[in-house]
Design a protein around this nucleic acid. Structure first.
Lengths: 261, 261
DNA sequence: CTGACTTTGTGCATCGCTTCACAAAGGCAC
DNA sequence: GTGCCTTTGTGAAGCGATGCACAAAGTCAG
């Protein structure tokens, strides 16, 4: 089904040449590129749904919200797909990017911490949709254990290690309060996990070889606030002075109660 | 109310000098730095809670999970706070970073889309804790409108514009399904909002002057999958072939190793 | 006051990513 | 085939971030 476009549009010889030159693909793909591949993939899926067969770098770039030169360079790191004068075969490119990202296989994901966020994640369709399968939900609170969410029964955090091994979980999502995050992190790593997606507002300490990605809601808001402030104070200087002479700490509300969560 | 620490360790003269030199602070702070400031802020709050009065760049860097040279350079963009031979006054630095990020004022935030994610966000303590106040919850589903969440009554999306203006909302969080996101986006921008945090898996199109930050759960997972695959395929080649036998790319059996990271 | 010690702030070399601009490659009409 | 048109893939320049290494600036003991 897929897999035809190529044979037609790119003679094998071509790549053999490519192959010989050590070049990009051989050694790692730039991180910045990897971070954008999922974006392209999403745009391509949108096009595919609308029945588009081929797409130019220009059009795809618009759909993905990036610059076309960047898109081409990104794709060139995967190999020389695409046909000059025509563009890229949508289905073929979807396959190639999926394979590169490792989405042609199924990843078992466990979610630890079934609070508001954990529930939202468990029910989030985007996970299941492409290559990811929620294989376990865990919480330390007995009141939550046993509850059925998104078709799964919440298990007690005590059995984390054994379940991870038994079900071949390779990616763990941490959605616990900040205080529990490091402990959970240590335990899943001990159980063999090397990829962690962390939603808790703490810096996790992990050994080499373990990948941690962090999603921090309040940090994003703070960055927005910075820009918003800049825009608002378009005028000359804003409160660039010390409040009244010399007040120091946050006078506002409280001593900044780090809302654990 | 609080506010002594500084007076002791940093004589006023000091910054007046700083103030005069146009230097870095005048023109924008690098984006990369802005993105890390919230991290430093969190680390500092942790230290403050433990009663630490001053901290060296080295220690703070460890707490924030960055390199100390980077930390010093980042802080130098704000001004010359810190005392050589001693370090930084924790309370003072908290105040300076908060001010720079615009957290000394209160930002009214509206959340549009009260599904699983919207609920999680509304209940997320991290928002309220520092400078952000949820001033409105909106949804288009009549079944949800009227419900009380985190002390707020969900309002119908129809009144979005008027409420935004009335309550002075300046930051909007979009947690709607992908299909509704662009419309919501257009409407809040028309109502004067220029800062948007988007959780919907779409690329929003906005006019110049509007800031959009995006948090995409499935993209993060896909990036993890990429690295996980790299690690797993430490062995020879994995499914590097085209489904039915046309060999496609790298036949090589080795390189790749490179724990890329 | 002097000298040893600590830690900041920054000049500089480097690195990686972005953007430009264009030659090379392919399609298509005739 | 030949020539024109479209679009890719990439060399090279530009730009911003990173990390090193050290002078400058401060503390502190005596």
């Amino acid at each position: 089904m897929v897999g035809d476009a190529l044979r037609l549009s790119v003679p094998l010889e071509h790549w053999q040449v490519i192959r010989r030159i050590p070049q990009a693909r051989e050694r790692g793909i730039p991180d910045a590129t990897v971070a954008r591949l999922p974006l392209y993939l999403r745009a391509l899926n949108g096009l595919a749904e609308r029945g588009t067969a081929t797409v130019s770098s220009e059009d795809l770039a618009v759909a993905a919200g990036v610059n076309s030169a960047k898109l081409r360079k990104d794709l060139s790191h995967l190999g020389s797909y695409g046909t000059r004068g025509v563009g890229y075969d949508v289905q073929y490119l979807i396959y190639q990017i999926s394979r590169e990202l490792g989405l042609t296989q199924d990843w078992a994901v466990a979610i630890v911490g079934v609070g508001n966020l954990g529930r939202a994640l468990a029910n989030y369709g985007g996970f299941v949709s492409r290559g990811f399968r929620v294989a376990g939900l865990f919480d330390a609170d007995p009141a939550v254990v046993g509850e059925r969410i998104a078709g799964l029964v919440v298990e007690h955090a005590d059995v984390l290690e054994s379940v991870i091994k038994k079900r071949g979980v390779s990616i763990v999502v941490i959605a616990t309060p900040a205080t529990a995050a490091q402990e959970v992190c240590d335990r899943v790593i001990a159980a063999g996990v090397t990829s962690i997606l962390n939603f808790a507002p703490v810096v996790l300490t992990v050994p080499d070889g373990v990948d941690v990605r962090k999603v921090d809601l309040s940090i994003e808001l703070q960055i927005l606030a910075f820009h918003e402030q800049r825009k608002a104070s378009g005028g000359p200087m804003m409160g660039d002075e010390w409040p009244d002479g010399v007040v120091v700490v946050s006078e506002r509300g409280a001593p900044l109660g780090e809302a654990s969560q």
